[in-house]
Amino acid sequence: MLRYLGVVPLGAYLLVFLLIPTGELVVDAFRDPSGTFTLSNVTTIFQAQYLSSFAASLELSALAALFGGILGFFAATAVVHPNAPRLVRSSVTTFSGMAANFAGIPLAFAFTSTLGATGVITVAFRHVGVSLAAVNPDATTLGLALVYTYFEFPLMLLLLVPALDGLKREWREAATNLGASGFTYWRTVALPILVPSLLGATVLLFGGAFSAYATAYALSGSTGNLVTELIGNLTNGNVTVDPQLAYALAFGMIVIITVLMVIYGLLQRRASRWLR
């Protein structure tokens, strides 16, 4: 038993801040305000308006993970390139460390003042006859995805740099020596080796976007349709307060993330079979 002593603090932390709150949330999702067991909260979230919220959250998370993932991957690849100046690597990773945590109200304001309906960039483009309405972060999923990309892509970069560092120079040289082009090397060697890291990082990006609240709330106020915004409105709203339904929505989020984690686990297992 003594050998497990070292993990006691972590176990206690997880118990207090993850397991107990999650358990309470799940239990409360199946209770009415008087504390009696009910399925009505959970069945309510299957109504069209709530399903559309889940769809919007999933779409936004997928877009943000996709944009952030692709941008982060290429940025990380450029940063670790052997010919890249050292200064680039250190400055980009330092910036990424900061940008990955730049979310919430400051990020929302930054984008509203630049790409919002009256943002400086939007206005500047309007003067030359170009409309940026499609990427308006206040009003469109695409726009909101771009805002999320701002903190998602540096996170992807930070997660991928160690994985890319792990690609040995000899693998590239061996592939080249055996007749492979740069593209073929990436397709047949580098990417398959990176898939477990890429999958893990993408799931993390997806989860980050799926659970983000403050940025979206700051941009759309109480009119947002994301699940996290609905939960916020149902627990703190001025008009409709229904904590039980909020618990059920949060329970729905847990189920979705669990399903994603299972899919991720299966893919990861398949992609990393060469590691076993």
């Binding site: 020596n177 055996l178 007749g179 060469w274």
Partner: peptide
């Protein structure tokens, strides 16, 4: 290098870790 038709064995193990021994040999 890819068009010189040379084979090279490196100092550190340079086998592609995502491929079996057979796939590594069949790679070229």
């Amino acid at each position: 290098a890819s068009r010189r038709n040379m084979g090279m064995v490196f100092q550190s193990y340079s086998l592609f870790p995502n491929m079996t021994a057979e796939d590594n040999v069949a790679y070229p």
